[in-house]
Design a protein around this nucleic acid. Structure first.
Lengths: 253, 253
DNA sequence: CCGGGTGAACTGGCCAGACCAGTGAACTTC
DNA sequence: GAAGTTCACTGGTCTGGCCAGTTCACCCGG
């Protein structure tokens, strides 16, 4: 090889190496969730670095949702099991750093939620179905009351769908994007959807989704979800967004 | 309200408050990407905290992909624009912390990639179509050569699909999950897909996807993508996974 | 007058040592 | 044996310092 190409001699930060080693130990299963890391003072001798360096590394791992440290604990920072929190946070910040339009978020939600409904129709068990039914009934009961409890029941309904999809990744991403949409709409405009009429519409659509899932009809469940979400958000989207929606839900055309 | 319910008086860590304030300044647009934060020493007087605290906060923001600090810079840490890196990292760690099965990842990829193909069929422009065609032609040319350049062309093809979907969220998540699947499969088994026959199959499927996108047929594009991915991974999934796949792609039944 | 080299004034990376308010387990006391 | 106390140790924070690298203004030679 006569073409020696040198690469930038990037300095490796020592706290990064601490992060790497601990992360490696976690993902390789050398330390399992529930177990504890050595204390900061112990780590600083094992890594031969100072405490601030150890702490910076721990803070990073903490922000990644891998560990949690509690003052006074006799057993050092705890290794956590997978949580959706960091992923949700990444979604939320991405959504807010301006680059993501409402169109993108809504498209994404349609894709995820309709798929979850398809999966739920095929894989739901009795308990999950019962939860959905329960939530729908609560929505029916609360439709005349304040919108607060109605919305809670609505959220419960969707949560049980995610659950029934048997796909945690889908669930986490779907809930994260739903939350981001709520944030964005709350920031932009008054929630105009709290009228009795709007609630009645939501209820009707959720009922359609529920019966499709209950009957085990994947195709119908997916269609119902796509229809529900796209009708709900259609008025907030621009022309391109509507075109995208038509591509995702051709049955609505 | 006669029901006063006290909540846990959780101590607020000071570095967390520094993170919050800076994060708020970024997401609110008070500081825009490309601009610079004050130096650590400046921040420590503004927040009235010590430098280690400032540094821990900056490390967290850095791990979230919001800022980058460079030693020697006269202008302090730089505020970054949105990047997919932290999201991709979250995906990768989630996937590896054992909770995510290959089934979930593959389902998720099918959902995202088929949707991207549907969107691409409706929204692609000439330049993006050209890129896809170019990639397919390169795959055709390389199918007899080493698998390395073939795989690169394959990746380029898919990348241009993500691009043409006009949805960055879809793109970032899709690419992240694709990467995670690759990692997982590399860890678990030898890549058995590098034979000439497998490459030929891949090429055939990509060609089907391409022609559907080129003709603007969203439905066909989505079907082609679902079919391609599920056929490719079917052998690696368990029974439940296959059932889920059937729910997501009923047209294959 | 202009250009290039030089050095001082920064930057972030890292360290040593210290104090504090909690926690929790061992220990003492009843 | 049970209840209360003590104390070692935890993480959170601060002070003060050193180092290597980057910048930029200044100065000197052309």
């Amino acid at each position: 090889m006569n073409k020696v190409s040198f690469s930038r001699a990037v300095p490796v930060l020592t706290y990064e190496r601490v992060v790497e080693q601990i992360e490696q130990a976690i993902v390789s299963g050398e330390i399992t969730p529930g177990q504890h890391l050595p204390s900061e003072r112990e780590l600083m001798v094992q890594f031969s670095v100072s405490r601030p360096t150890v702490r910076e590394a721990l803070r990073v791992l903490q922000s990644l949702g891998l560990i949690a440290s509690k003052p006074g604990s006799r057993s050092g920072p705890e290794v956590l099991s997978m949580s959706s929190e960091p992923l949700g946070r990444s979604f939320a910040t991405m959504a807010r750093i301006a680059s993501l339009s409402l169109t993108e978020l809504v498209q994404f939600r349609i894709v995820l939620e309709s798929s979850a409904c398809q999966l739920a129709a095929a894989l739901r068990n009795g308990e999950q179905l019962e939860k959905m039914q329960n939530a729908v009934e609560r929505m029916e009961a609360e439709v005349t009351n304040g919108s607060d409890s109605f919305n809670r029941a609505d959220l419960d309904f969707h949560a049980s769908i995610w659950e029934a999809s048997h796909n945690d990744l889908l669930k986490v991403c779907g809930q994260a994007v739903s939350g981001s949409i709520l944030n964005l709409m709350n920031e932009r405009m008054e929630r105009s959807a709290d009228t009795a009429g709007a609630m009645r519409e939501s209820l009707e659509r959720d009922r359609a989704i529920y019966s499709a899932i209950a009957s085990g009809d994947s195709v119908a469940a997916g269609d119902a979800a796509r229809s529900a979400i796209s009708r709900y958000f259609a008025e907030y989207l621009d022309e391109d967004g509507v075109r995208g929606l038509r591509a995702l839900a051709p049955e609505l055309a």
